[in-house]
Design a protein around this nucleic acid. Sequence first.
DNA 1: TTGACATATTCCTATATGGGAATATATTGA
DNA 2: TCAATATATTCCCATATAGGAATATGTCAA
Lengths: 111, 111
Amino acid sequence: MARSAANSDAFNAVAEPRRREILNYLVMQERSVSEIVEAMELEQPSISKHLKVLKGVGLVAARRDGRQMLYKVNPMAIRPLHDWTSTFERLWKDQLLRIKQRAEGNNATKE
Amino acid sequence: MARSAANSDAFNAVAEPRRREILNYLVMQERSVSEIVEAMELEQPSISKHLKVLKGVGLVAARRDGRQMLYKVNPMAIRPLHDWTSTFERLWKDQLLRIKQRAEGNNATKE
DNA sequence: TTGACATATTCCTATATGGGAATATATTGA
DNA sequence: TCAATATATTCCCATATAGGAATATGTCAA
């Protein structure tokens, strides 16, 4: 079996670095395809293909404005990723706390 | 060019659903490979391969205990994912707020 | 040393890319 | 209708899987 398709879910879609770059760029505001092409060093067809994947999983929304297509982030689609990573938040906070406590202990007792 | 390797970074590693399942399972506590195999419906070699990828990007750590290998999550490695998704948090909160305000507006003015 | 248990690795194959090149489609203005 | 602009799609290929099967490696107990 091959890897799951990039357009199967948001996790797969954002695995591709260029697609994360596009999302980062769209955080600021809605942009046309040509603006995205200019901002990134990548051919227009590649950008369009990445946008198709992002749209396929709902990470961006598009609307036509004359000859242009304007894309914007759909932030809600990122929440599942955020929520999933948050389930580990307690763990890394505990880990940081232990590291800090150990450091303080070392200073005090020179153990 | 093909897709970037699964062991290139945490984003690619967690794109695979089975690997997320493994991480979810390891949130509770450290586990041996056979425990993971039992918990998931997947052959042992596949589990070992997934664990290798996860270890490769630092998402899990392993230690030997007799014949067993015990794996645990390294939560710090998930922080980059969390941080990246957090950059969109303001956006979806604004979006939720607008939705809420619109709903309230409708109730009040029946617009 | 040997047998058994626990994991890891190798080999194989179907599948899904991601980007470049070429081409198709959509929309506007004359 | 036609040319020009803006995007999208198709074709092609090198690459990287993910899982199954078979096998290798590591560790302990007798």
